[in-house]
Each structure stands twice: as structure tokens, then as C-alpha cells.
Design a binder for these strands. Structure first.
Length: 249
DNA sequence: GCGACAG
DNA sequence: ATCTTGTCGC
């Protein structure tokens, strides 16, 4: 599948907020019946003092969560970091990365929030809507909402905002900071939490996101080159390894 | 007006 | 997010 190329260079923060308000109405929290086998982890990192945005997509297969495909993409950073407008900064590069994948994911696990957002339209919602792939937001810290403290017995609790439940706060691993799970698109809060729990493998972050995180924050392409040599990985993204050429700007 | 504020 | 070595704790 081919995902659209996007660019928010000339979009003002005000217009970005207007778009979120409009697009948020198209988000569905109804679970899709389609079976989920391939889960893609999505994350973004930065190079050259933030001038270059580097997105990574790592695809794992259930139920073993083994890596089967991956891709990265780099492009000039074209939107500032503004809390609440993260998707406009990271989505363009993410779509490039998704276009470099060999397989089509059934589900997207995004590093960042879904509806646990001021306008219920975090990056997971935006990405899910643009790709029409079921998506879940997995935040490492809180953007909005309140919740009761987690304990040894309580490993999951509601995240509330403006009188409604917008997600769940979960203890993905003992002794670590909790994770904030919220629906992106085509999934309920309950199912989203279940999906995140079944994507864990002993670490704080879900396996798909762990891989994506390592690939996105690997400026020297150490891991990338190592993976390119793995015969188990059918995908050989050699062309994806080439460094971004500044002269192409 | 004063804080809070994903990555 | 990124810049960065050692270091406190399970």
C-alpha cells in the first residue's frame, strides 16, 4: 500500500489546531473485527541538532513478537515541537518510513498519545486516520488527564479528563514509570490496553516500539546495518540505509 | 494572569 | 527529542 506524502511546513499552529478539531470528529473508538497478526511500532528521533527528523517503523508478528520487517526514513524537520501539535512535526517522516516497509501492518503502536490529548487528537489518532490502519497511542509521560496511583496489585487504572475516560495508565513493568495508553483509531480503550499488554516482553516498552525506538535513535546506523545482515529478516532495506543527502533539500 | 505542557 | 559519564539501585 502507498501512503500519502505530507508536508506541514506552511501550516500555522492556529490552523493546525483547527484541523485537529475537525479531524477528531472522524475518529472511531469501535473495535475492528479484522484479525491482528502484524504490529508495527512507530517512533521518531532527531539528528543534526534537530534539523533532521528520523522516523522508524518496526514490524513484529504475534504471538511471539518476533521482528519480521523494519524501515527508517529521514527528512528535514519542517515543524516545531509544540505540545499538542506533535503529529504535524513527526507524521511526514513516519509516512515515508511506512512506505519503505515490505509488509502491511494490521495495527500501529505509536510512541505518543491517542485521544489522551487536549482535543482528543494525538499523533496516534492522526496517523491512524491518514493510513486507515487501527492505531494505539502509547505515551511515556502525561499530556493531559488525571489518574489514581498504581500499586503492586493495581497495574492498570483509568485516565480521566474533563469528566470522561480517555485512556488507561498501566504498569508495564515493575519499578518503572507507567505508560499512558489511549485509542488512536478504530479501537476501544479496553482493547487498546489489552493489545499493549500482549505486546510486552519483559521491558517497559512494547516490543514493536522498543525496536522502532532503537532504530530511530541510532544515528550511526549500527543496529540498522546489523539487521540488514540477518537472514531471518526477509526484508533487506539496503536502500533505506543510505544517509540523507543534504544537497537534496 | 499563573502553571502545565506527548516527543 | 538531544547533549552526555558515571553512578545509585534492584
Amino acid at each position: 500500500m502507498r501512503f500519502p506524502n505530507m508536508d506541514f511546513t506552511n501550516l500555522s499552529p492556529k490552523d493546525a489546531i483547527d484541523q485537529q478539531k475537525t479531524l477528531a470528529q472522524q475518529i472511531s473508538l469501535i473495535d475492528r473485527e479484522a484479525p491482528v497478526k502484524c504490529i508495527a511500532g512507530i517512533d521518531v528521533g532527531f539528528e543534526a541538532k534537530g534539523r533532521i527528523t528520523r522516523a522508524a517503523a518496526a514490524l513484529v508478528m504475534l504471538p511471539d513478537l518476533h521482528l519480521i520487517d523494519f524501515a527508517i526514513a529521514r527528512r528535514p524537520t519542517s515543524f516545531p515541537y509544540i505540545p499538542g501539535l506533535l503529529s504535524f512535526r513527526e507524521i511526514p517522516a513516519i509516512l515515508d518510513a511506512l512506505n519503505n516497509l515490505v509488509y502491511h501492518p494490521d495495527l500501529l503502536l505509536v510512541d505518543g498519545h491517542g485521544i489522551a490529548h487536549p482535543r482528543k487528537f494525538g499523533i496516534a489518532c492522526h496517523l491512524g486516520l491518514v493510513t486507515d490502519i487501527t492505531s494505539i497511542g502509547v505515551g511515556k509521560s502525561r499530556l493531559v488527564g488525571t489518574s489514581n496511583p498504581l500499586t503492586e496489585k493495581i497495574t492498570c487504572t483509568e485516565l480521566a479528563y474533563r469528566g470522561e475516560t480517555i485512556g488507561q495508565v498501566i504498569q508495564s513493568k515493575a519499578g518503572t514509570k507507567p505508560l499512558y495508553v489511549s485509542p488512536g483509531h478504530h479501537i476501544s480503550i479496553e482493547k487498546a490496553t489489552t493489545r499493549v499488554f500482549e505486546s510486552l516482553k519483559g521491558y517497559r516498552l512494547p516490543e514493536p516500539i522498543r525496536w522502532a525506538h532503537r532504530l530511530a535513535s541510532d544515528p550511526e546506523n549500527i543496529l540498522l546495518r546489523a539487521l540488514a545482515k540477518e537472514p531471518q529478516l526477509i526484508n533487506r532495506p539496503r536502500e533505506h540505509v543510505k544517509r540523507f543527502d543534504p544537497s537534496e533539500i
